[in-house]
Amino acid sequence: MSYALIVAEVRRGLFEERNLDSIGICSLLEKDPIMLIPESDYSVNWEALSGVIKVKIEETQFLNPLNMVNILGKVIGKRGKPDVIIFTNSASGAELAAYTAGYFDLPIITDVSNYDKEQGVFYKSYYSDKIFGEFKPSGDGSFIITVRSGSFKEYVTENGTTPSIETIEDITASPVRTFMEYVEEEKTDVDITKADFLLSLGRGIGNKDEIPSYEELAGLLKAVISGSRPVIDKMWLPKARQVGTSGKTVKPKVYLAMGISGAFQHIAGMKDSDCIIAVNKDPEAPIFQYANYGIVADIHKVRDKLKDILKA
């Protein structure tokens, strides 16, 4: 039977919102959405699904690629190969998808953010969103995609019927990779999610020595400093200041981004700000697509000029 198999992403009892993008793309693909999910009390948009396959397994074992391939083997054995297997494009979705592709020898297209129904092509980001590739799986067998969060949720349709339910059990957990525990981020005094005005610094600042001068600007503007991942990776700013999927999600009144290109993992963490202002010397930087206002210039010059005006 023709169907799309959606591997749900669930974490600590929560059904992640980005699963909606996996469901949404099924409408464009015109495939019946069947969701694979651990058997537990998740709050799911059941009416948007044709079927649900519940797996009797711990959530942390479900999210383990070495177990996922066994689960998928059982699903395929029971109901035949899906036309497409859909994962989220997150830390866990990406890990599961790649391993599954290798295990079942299937085509894979990751980070899909658009689909052209007429031509049957998937849009995949290249060069941090500066170019997109239009890809197609070769042949007409099963294939795998991971979908970018926020790209397809608008296509979710709830048809008002309850989905069919199947159960899968007796999955032997892999002994070669095992979950031990969750590790929480340390609590810190500054909470960037509470700030009204964030001055956010990206790799474009060049080096650590520039930080004090931006701190001075932030002081004059009464803004709180945050940053993109590379700035935190290089330890120019503490981890608690990171904006993005693996950092914090912020919604300030104003988000002033300086020297940030606008990779989707960053955008996902700040796109709901009331007003986004971007300063970047590259007029093609993807961040200008999301910003309300932009200045195309050297950020250091903008910093110095702002300081001059504010001090005058």
Partner: peptide, 12 residues
């Protein structure tokens, strides 16, 4: 993982 969360894993 997302949002500052990590998981500790043993791998052979």
């Amino acid at each position: 993982l997302e949002g500052g969360l990590q998981e500790r894993v043993k791998v052979m």
